[in-house]
Nucleic acid binder design. Sequence first.
DNA 1: ACCTGAACACCGTTCAAGT
DNA 2: ACCTGAACACCGTTCAAGT
Lengths: 214, 214
Amino acid sequence: MRTERRTPLNRARVLDAGIALADTEGVDALTMRRLGGTLGVEAMALYNHVANKEDLFDGMLDRVAEEITLPDVDLPWRDYARARAVSAHTTLMRHRWAAAMWTARISLGPARMRYMDGALRSLREAGFPAGLLDLTYHAIENHIVGHALQAQGFPLEAAEMTAMGEGFLRTFPTDRYPDLAAHIRHHLDHPTGDDFEFGLDLILDGLERMRAVT
Amino acid sequence: MRTERRTPLNRARVLDAGIALADTEGVDALTMRRLGGTLGVEAMALYNHVANKEDLFDGMLDRVAEEITLPDVDLPWRDYARARAVSAHTTLMRHRWAAAMWTARISLGPARMRYMDGALRSLREAGFPAGLLDLTYHAIENHIVGHALQAQGFPLEAAEMTAMGEGFLRTFPTDRYPDLAAHIRHHLDHPTGDDFEFGLDLILDGLERMRAVT
DNA sequence: ACCTGAACACCGTTCAAGT
DNA sequence: ACCTGAACACCGTTCAAGT
């Protein structure tokens, strides 16, 4: 049985395979050799399509950014900000490894530039003055990334989550840290965790109030 | 010239050396061999004091948590939350590598447990009901971590920052992303970035309002 | 143009051996 | 009790060589 010669690699296929590997096995499992393996190719072949591992991550990140739905530019700023934040949040939940790189990397691809520029434009057109605008943008963005990073510590499956928590609480010094114990128990009872939109609306409400004043 | 026999290693010295190395050279430069080198010891000797690299990071993180000043428990919740958030923020700015691990790791040492338990206790005693309390805690925490992660992408020195930005803007498609370009320019003009407290107060104000209602 | 083999300078970690 | 040498199974990356 002869294995068919695969269609030649290209950058997009390398990036997508990288995302798939990081999604399923974790970002630590993403090595050039393993990534090559999933594509039926030696590790060195990847260097024809990405400059190095940094460039690979930057490319993966921008491809993730493409998955974020940018709202209609004519929406009121609050609806625009809310819709884009929710979409960014959903996307980062699908690709949890991306959270730690999301704002920490300076290198921006076109999709991330569109994302940022659109958000900033919406705020400016809503009348946020220069200084407040940048603070506003970061307040929202920090919440998105902070939440995604927090979610990273938890397993994806609810059952797995419960098992982890039970084992955790068994050895936990509940009497010394009663409030923390209650907090952990709360996480076990509410594994879905819709607290993203709670914090988001808190921020958006505050921003609307500030905008009205200035 | 004979080198004096050093006082034997212990866990605290290993952790502190790890923090110092990560602070100065970046977390990627923190390898067991290099860390051993800074302590005048072979890499393998470290395994007498930390179980493995995971354990090393967990230990370092808890030592960082010790640097956070926990406010007086008798303070009103808003003052407590604000003081602890500002102290956590200052600490994470000193140890930027810690941001990505801060909430993503489940393994908690005693210092982080004290930090979390104290924060949760203050909110509970202020009358936040069970459900709201956990949302509140995360809203604040997400902001701290989100901001720290965002700061990670920027160099520490103002001069270095300006140089980076100038080079960045030179090749930047300003006409295609005018609002993003303005945002970057804003970052260059305000390298200090006191936007942490802006977002923090936004959240705290919103929380106080919710607490008053319930 | 794209891929591979061999090689280099690293990693984390184990373990028997030293003091 | 603490440290080391040697070793193992990996890394990212370069480069000459193959098709």
